[in-house]
Design a protein around this nucleic acid. Sequence first.
DNA 1: CCATTTCCTAACGCCTTCTTAACGCCGGTC
DNA 2: GACCGGCGTTAAGAAGGCGTTAGGAAATGG
Lengths: 231, 231
Amino acid sequence: MNNPGPLILLVEDEPQMRRFLRVALEGSSYRYLEASTGEEGLALAVQHRPDVILLDLGLPDMDGLDLMTRLREWSQTPVIVISARGQETDKIGALDVGADDYLTKPFGTGELLARIRVALRHADPQATEDPVFVLGRWHVDLAKRQVLVDGKEVHLTPLEYGLFTTLIRHAGKLVTQRQLLKEVWGGVAGAQPLYLRVYMAQLRHKLEEDPSRPRYLQTEPGVGYRLRMED
Amino acid sequence: MNNPGPLILLVEDEPQMRRFLRVALEGSSYRYLEASTGEEGLALAVQHRPDVILLDLGLPDMDGLDLMTRLREWSQTPVIVISARGQETDKIGALDVGADDYLTKPFGTGELLARIRVALRHADPQATEDPVFVLGRWHVDLAKRQVLVDGKEVHLTPLEYGLFTTLIRHAGKLVTQRQLLKEVWGGVAGAQPLYLRVYMAQLRHKLEEDPSRPRYLQTEPGVGYRLRMED
DNA sequence: CCATTTCCTAACGCCTTCTTAACGCCGGTC
DNA sequence: GACCGGCGTTAAGAAGGCGTTAGGAAATGG
């Protein structure tokens, strides 16, 4: 469950490029390592066994192709080459000594991340998980429309689920009664604040440890409700 | 079997481009097939099981991404997308629905061949079996359209099979009634939720141990159905 | 053209879900 | 300290959705 996320190794000597790559990887829940020379990169690869390697060919201490060759003597880790040189012979050379992809600078963050996903998919075809909202003992998979409490599935009716996910969408923020009624009941006339009381109670019974003292599903008297994020 | 060289499938509608690709592959000891439409491409893929597919996104009869999706339902064959569109969103979209590489026109013959070699390298030599979906006592061979329960073949009508595989394709996820009707009945007007009730009942009778208490084919009242994965 | 399979449709009873009402609790106000 | 409004809780009735069955229409295949 608490998968720490794939590990990416950057082998890149230019500080500017390293910063760019770091920013690209941050926020995508990847862990990453940095090396500024080929030798350092090889050492880190041996030590930490990254899931993907991003390799700049223009290194100061050794040729990128040599590094590829030495790496492939013992490791099948996917390598995405990043290079300023867009010559076809460069690409062919890198791909033929074992690189899995070749990106020419400049390139976009989105494409890089997509190609990293492809590389990860190749390494482990099974692992294609949905984004999951986690809070305390709750795991909510919006794609599956599934709610787990302590790993056990809890069934929610359409209105319960709608109310719950509306609060999740505005996690941490206060949501007014009017807003909840509009988003969950679809703006149909006849929706009353009473509904919220009833369904919040049902949600707390199904989800909260102590429904009478809700930890996360909190009431903001006279205004609305809030999904509390801090612990 | 004597290895006659990898088989490449070209899916490309422009004759000019097809000629170029054909020339690129000739002399490299590749065998190749050609399709000028998406449907033809899918048919050839099913029949001949190519080792690599070169796919042009700009097809006349169907969207390239749809073709990718339908192909990935049963096949892990590496796909190299070839496109005139170099937009980053195009690349990301194609890579995320299962493409293994993305080449923007124009490109060099050498690079294409190198990327084909990468794709062939990725293809696991021993993983040539049909993709089989296994769940409990069920074995579903998506390529052969064959369903086994406890090793015994169970016959499903086309609609039953379509409904079942649609749920398999979204295994674990909830599929709304609207979605099922659209994907199985093809968006034809007149498709009613009643159909789902009838065919789900038939599926449960043919597949579930206790049809009155389905273990896998579950109803989400008011929303849709789900193929439950966990036990 | 006939036999067989497959699909559509209607009817009925059961079950989940939604709505609504009643009541008790808590806090604030006069 | 009594009143009042907002909230939580529970339960019961209403409404709608679902499973099931069966028979006729349509499509399929020889």
